[in-house]
Structures are given as C-alpha cells and as structure tokens.
Amino acid sequence: MSGRPDLDALPAIPRDAEGPVFAEPWEAQAFALAVRLHERGCFTWREWTDALAAEIGAARQRGDTTTGYYAHWLAALEKLVAAKGLASAEDLRRRRDEWDRAVRATPHGRPIELARGQEPGARGA
C-alpha cells in the first residue's frame, strides 16, 4: 500500500449484476456459522473482523489474489473456533476425514450419514 503502485499490474475487478450473494451453498453455510456463533456470544464481531482481516492480509502478503473471499472466511473461522476452544484443529481434521469417507461410502442418491465414515471402532460406540 505504499510507493507507486503499478495499476496496470492489478487484475480487473470482477463485476456482477445484482445477482445472488453466494456463489455456492458452502459459502452460505460458512457465512451463517460465523454469524450464529457471534450471536451466541462465542466471539465479538471485532474479534471476527480481526481474524478475517488477518487471513485476507496474509494472502495479500503472499501475493495471493485468487483465493476467494469465502475461502478466507472459512479459514478465519476455523482458526477462531480453535483459538476459542470450540473445536480444535485436530478435531476438525478428523471430522473432515470422516465426512470424506462417509461420502465415498454412500450409495448414490442416499442421504450422506456421518456414521458411514467413522472408524469401525468408533461406530456405535
């Protein structure tokens, strides 16, 4: 943000009509999770915007201009949730793997059930 910027080197601003605000359903889910946790008092809005700004600022430092806004939103939420002791990074990773296995083990057209992805020992325990 200092010195003489090379404006030509900056990518164009994506434009849109007054269309949908979420590109994909997961963006809406990630959005709603942060808003709901704030409503529940799990963190202040200031803490949230600081976390989001840190995530976006770090991407800028790396020269990363392609990662989408809600990808930053999700990464910031994972970190804040861990920092607040709501769910650890390890718990999140393990649960992510369980969902991955569950999806792959689900016959097409059937609802995805988490139990399909849990380790045999954990099932029904």
Binding site: W26, L74, V81, D91, L92, R95, R96, E98, W99, V103
Partner: peptide, 11 residues
C-alpha cells in the same frame, strides 16, 4: 465442502 461440514457438524 468437507471442511464446512466438519465445522458445522462439530459445532
């Protein structure tokens, strides 16, 4: 999507 599902289900 997996990461969002992980967050949502744990929370």
């Amino acid at each position: 999507q997996l990461r969002v599902k992980a967050l949502e289900s744990l929370l």
